[in-house]
């Protein structure tokens, strides 16, 4: 049986999730040049927000067709609140501070958010099960589940919505302006604080969409889920060209596919039998990142960055 189509599908799905989370990194970075390392945790809190809706608010046996949109709203509210709260109370006071100070804040925030969930969310010291969409469909040699379909649709809808928003809406254009030159755009009457809050909020909401997809696909969530996903999403954002929203999505997909294919096929290459398998997948993913950056230092779709760094 040829596994390539299935493995490609696996990679695309994983990559879409990376891409959704990477949007949060890239938008915030594009506007304030801040690496929000706590973004993975915003993703995680979104998952718990959605679980709260399902497990504690909705009556048992609610149809998933009704439950999923409500979970998206619940997760979205939590993620957006956490993201905006982090901006308002942790990052904004540091906007004039040296570059590394917000980075340490982010590490602290990341630890604190994980621990809040672990300590205070019922049963969250272990993984909690999450309602999953298990129905599966065979398309040729590829098996995909309802959750996978949800993920792809959600990613496409979110991306096109965002693209429209940034290009056409007033706020979106103000966002572009702020990204280019915050001082001048402020002089032109743009409320940059508001723009920054919106960037955090959009990032938070996309993270929540990714979180709900994650829960529906894997059937469980845990307080640690944000760390590795966040790291990968950040890698994806950089690979695609940080600051560029299409780059984030492309970077996510490339990373996801690369990881999956590396895990599946590297050990078939003569001389590398021992360097394959899931264990080494992250190594190859990072190697790919380094290669991409060597040949395209601004990332796949990145713009000029000379005066950014």
């Amino acid at each position: 049986m040829n596994t390539l189509p299935q493995q490609l599908a696996n990679g695309l799905l994983l990559g879409s999730m990376y891409g959704l989370i990477a949007i949060g990194y890239t938008m915030v970075y594009g506007i304030v040049q801040l690496i929000n390392f706590a973004h993975g945790e915003i993703f995680m809190t979104g998952a718990f927000g959605a679980l709260t809706v399902y497990a504690y608010i909705l009556p048992d046996g609610t149809s998933m067709v009704v439950a999923v949109p409500l979970m998206l709203i619940g997760g979205g509210i939590v993620s957006v609140l956490v993201a905006v709260g982090a901006e308002r109370f942790a990052y904004r006071p540091l906007r004039q501070a040296p570059r590394l100070a917000p980075l340490i804040t982010a590490i602290g925030l990341s630890l604190a958010l994980q621990e809040v969930v672990r300590n205070f969310y019922p049963g969250a010291d272990k993984d909690r099960s999450f309602p999953s969409l298990d129905g599966s469909h065979d398309i040729g040699s590829v098996t995909i589940t309802d959750a996978d379909i949800f993920l792809v649709v959600a990613a496409i809808v979110c991306m096109s919505g965002l693209a429209w928003f940034v290009r056409k809406s007033r706020t979106g254009r103000a966002m572009q302006a702020t990204a280019q030159d915050p001082d001048t755009s402020q002089l032109m009457g743009i409320d940059t604080n508001r723009i920054i809050v919106i960037a955090f909020a959009i990032g938070g909401f996309f993270a929540a969409v990714a979180a709900v997809s994650y829960g529906l696909k894997y059937g469980n969530i845990g307080y640690r889920m944000g760390f590795l996903m966040g790291l990968k999403a950040f890698t994806a954002a950089v690979m695609g060209g940080i600051g560029n929203i299409y780059g984030a999505m492309l970077g996510g997909v490339v990373l996801g596919v690369a990881e999956t294919l590396a895990s599946a096929y590297i050990n078939h290459i003569p001389g590398m039998q021992q360097l394959g398998g899931s264990g080494w997948a992250n190594v190859w993913a990072f190697c790919l990142l380094i290669l991409v950056l060597l040949f395209r230092p601004q990332g796949l779709l990145g713009e000029r960055v000379a005066d950014r760094a």
Partner: peptide, 10 residues
């Protein structure tokens, strides 16, 4: 500890 890091940086 996480909160202490945030406050110190703040």
């Amino acid at each position: 500890f996480g909160i202490a890091l945030i406050l110190l940086m703040r």
